[in-house]
Amino acid sequence: MRALPHLKQFTEVAEQEIMHSGHVACPGCGAAIAMRLALKTLGRRTIIVFPACCWAVIDGPFPYSACSVPVFQVAFETASISAGAIRAGLDITGKKDINVVAWAGDGGTFDIGFGQLSACAERNDNIIYVCYDNEAYMNTGIQRSSATPWGSWTTTTPGTDFKKERKKNLLEIMAAHRIPYAATTTVAYPDDLIRKFRKAMSIDGFKLIHIFSPCPPGHKALEKDSILESRYAVESRVFPLYEVEHGTHYKLSMDPPQRPVRDYLALQGRFKHLTDEQRDFIQKSTDEEWARLMHFMKVSEAVE
């Protein structure tokens, strides 16, 4: 175990590398970093379920696998039920000390797998559901998903047809299911990510971890800027880090000095067509969302 020295409260990070080098992620892939940290935390008694997504490829072509834990690839729309059913199979055969993790992209979570996700949450299946969110279908070459933010270019929202719909609020939706634990995190804050996985492991029932994952080719950003993009997402409040327990108790994980949304947008070519007014609009809706989130925090405190 090694501590990350620059952090105020020290987070223990396991030395073990359960994810190997030799995976086939693009340079700067946030989802690869997320997996490395997650597996360090989850340990070897973990089973990972991949629906179709970049990670279905990143793990390596047959007969290779970058994760030295059992990996089960499933149909695109079935990550949650597959994981829930693996849990049922393990439980009934007496193997209760294993983490079952569904590891899906935003498309597999917000879109095609959404109905099954809701059902699995409602049943409170005892799994950790991870959505690594790169805000589009990246595996198939950058098409819009319902996690793609307003204003973004994708290949199915080209030119002046850039995305005009807002991003779905996954955490609010999951909170409405009153699941025991839901949290957001991102790769620029490894201690936060690790702490949230640890917490999820300690809770029975359905846990959801939503990880903002920069994608250099998809966001038209520089590979070296992935961590910066991840940090700016948090600092600009585009992607606040928080937890929701039992669907009602909101807790902010950090509140860094606010950075203008423009800084975040400027790192990414997918927003480069936006006018000043459009950027202002994103700032305004980001502020509104933040105010709404703060309201939830306050209500939670009052209840406490």
């Binding site: 095609i112 070459g141 098409q143 819009r144 290949t155 080209p158 030119g159």
Partner: peptide, 29 residues
């Protein structure tokens, strides 16, 4: 979208965005 069909619908998204085809494109889930 799905590989290897994706470029069909990307092309159509482009065609519709450029106004070359007066169609409604429902981008389903």
């Amino acid at each position: 979208p799905i590989t290897p069909q994706t470029t069909i619908i990307e092309e159509l998204a482009d065609i519709v965005a450029k106004g070359l085809l007066d169609a409604k494109f429902i981008k389903v889930e």
